[in-house]
């Protein structure tokens, strides 16, 4: 079976003047349709660069990204991104922020009324219809991130890219939003790539966890399957031996074999 999304021998070298540094080396990753894959690693290991390469915001130096058998090297709505700091446009309302993407993606395929309906449908998915006419500055951090997710989902992406989507949120809001994302994944069956540095989050949400070695020249150290049945319940998992074993293996990877070297 050919993979849905494939990263094929991706290298990334940043060059500034005469100094060049290799950030990623020989990244190979295959995703099936509907997979939820987390990428975890210490900061500076190039996981955000990797996501940007999939999104097309950064180009790989060597190698490439293949989505449904076609190479992608520029950004597009088929790989919608949920940014860490939500990146909503502050001068637009919640509704307009989502509508912006909808209007571009469905300009030819949907009528005005249908685009309006689709925008509201996606706001409803993340339970944000009540704040549709508010501006981003008037809603909480968790709500902003919900709108960010709605904006990405509304583009009907083939792959949804989450760049540390819960990193800037407090623990309670984060748990709540993780549950929402899990429910959405269950309902819509999206293919999702998520960057995270939270071990519990990775185990709870993913089908597979991609563990990165430390940079420079970071690469994939290990890929761990998470054989937990869905839907998953946060509370039940807390004492589930499979969950605890997965968690332990990620922790071992991060803190024993690939310990973060301070200011290398």
């Amino acid at each position: 079976m050919t993979p849905y999304l494939k990263l094929d021998h991706v290298d990334k070298v940043f060059t500034r003047g005469k100094v060049s540094s290799e950030v990623l080396k020989d990244i190979n990753l295959n995703l099936g349709k509907g997979d939820y894959v987390s990428i975890i690693g210490h900061s500076g290991c190039g996981k955000s660069t990797m996501l940007n390469i999939i999104a097309g915001l950064t180009r790989a130096t060597i190698g490439g990204v293949i989505l449904e058998g076609r190479e992608v090297n520029s950004p597009g709505p088929d790989r919608a991104v949920v940014f860490q700091n939500h990146s909503l446009l502050p001068w637009l309302t919640v509704y307009q922020n989502v509508r912006l993407g909808v209007d571009k993606v469905f300009a030819k395929t949907k009528s005005r009324a249908e685009r309006d309906e689709w925008t509201m449908h996606n706001l409803n998915l993340v339970q944000m219809t009540h704040a549709k006419d508010k501006r981003p500055s008037e809603i909480s951090g968790g709500m902003k991130q919900r709108v960010g997710i709605a904006r990405a989902l509304a583009m009907e992406p083939k792959v949804l890219l989450l760049d540390e989507p819960f990193g800037a949120l407090d623990a309670l809001t984060r748990a709540h939003l993780q549950d929402s994302v899990m429910a959405l994944h269950q309902k819509l069956g999206n293919t999702i790539v998520m960057i995270t540095h939270d071990v519990d989050e990775a185990v709870l949400l993913s089908d597979r966890i991609v563990m990165m070695t430390n940079g420079p020249s970071a690469t994939i150290g290990e890929v761990l399957d998470v054989p937990l049945a869905r839907p998953r319940q946060r509370l039940e998992l807390a004492s589930n031996p499979v969950y605890l074993d997965c968690r332990k293996r990620v922790l071992e990877f991060l803190y024993e074999r690939h310990k973060f070297v301070e200011a290398a």
Binding site: L57, P77, K104
Partner: peptide
């Protein structure tokens, strides 16, 4: 901010739309 440019790139705004929006 680069974030806004990234958003515009993902949504694929053309230069005219990018200027106005």
């Amino acid at each position: 901010p680069q974030d806004y440019r990234n958003v515009a790139a993902v949504v694929q705004l053309n230069p005219v739309e990018f200027f106005w929006k």
